[in-house]
Amino acid sequence: METDKNLDAYQEFVKGLWRDNPVFVQVLGMCPMLAVTNSAINALVMGGATLFVLIGSSFLVASLKKWIPKQVRISLYIIIIATFVTVADYSLLALMPGVHKELGAFIPLIVANCMILGRQEAFASRHGVRFAVLDAAGMALGFTLALFALGSVREILGNGSLFNIPLFGDTFEPWVIMILPPGGFITLGLILLVFNWAAVRKQRFMQQVAEAERETL
């Protein structure tokens, strides 16, 4: 086992939510990010499906890593991921046909979400099952959080509602562009702007604190 002794379970879980957020920091998984976030419910279902696939495949990859020959590991990861995606696809089709119709081709396309393959290669295949699952859960929740942030902004502005509950009454003028693909790009860009701005501010603040400490010492 690699370096699991130095890992902290809580840290491995939390890092995906904010510090290493797959969308806002790593900028991975942009395809579902932009395509299905035109409403909060779509974003949540997409996040849920990704959570299922990521936890499932991280668990399998971490527990099977002894038997996975490294020459064909990528193909095996993809087989594992694709299996979970197909399971998710059929289950959604059976349980939530309405949402499945709206998400359309983007559920099968979870296979191509580079965040998932990235977690297998970078984490699950090098660590124990417990940490792999924690890491997967954190990353997937971070991804869901980002999808939800984007989806709710776009639904509120583009449709005047959240989870299909109207917020502003009948006379609300919807911002049509927010529901359309350009709205996804604009909103994501603005959120990234805020994220980076906050990061820079924080860094500057930490520097000042460090300097102040050095002076007092």
Binding site: P69, I79, I80
Partner: peptide, 23 residues
């Protein structure tokens, strides 16, 4: 990574086939 020795191609094909079958 776990397997340091170069495994034969039979093993590679077998593991892929097995994974495909289970999936």
């Amino acid at each position: 990574l776990p397997s340091t020795r170069e495994p034969g191609s039979v093993r590679l094909v077998l593991s892929l086939a097995l994974a495909g079958l289970i999936s």
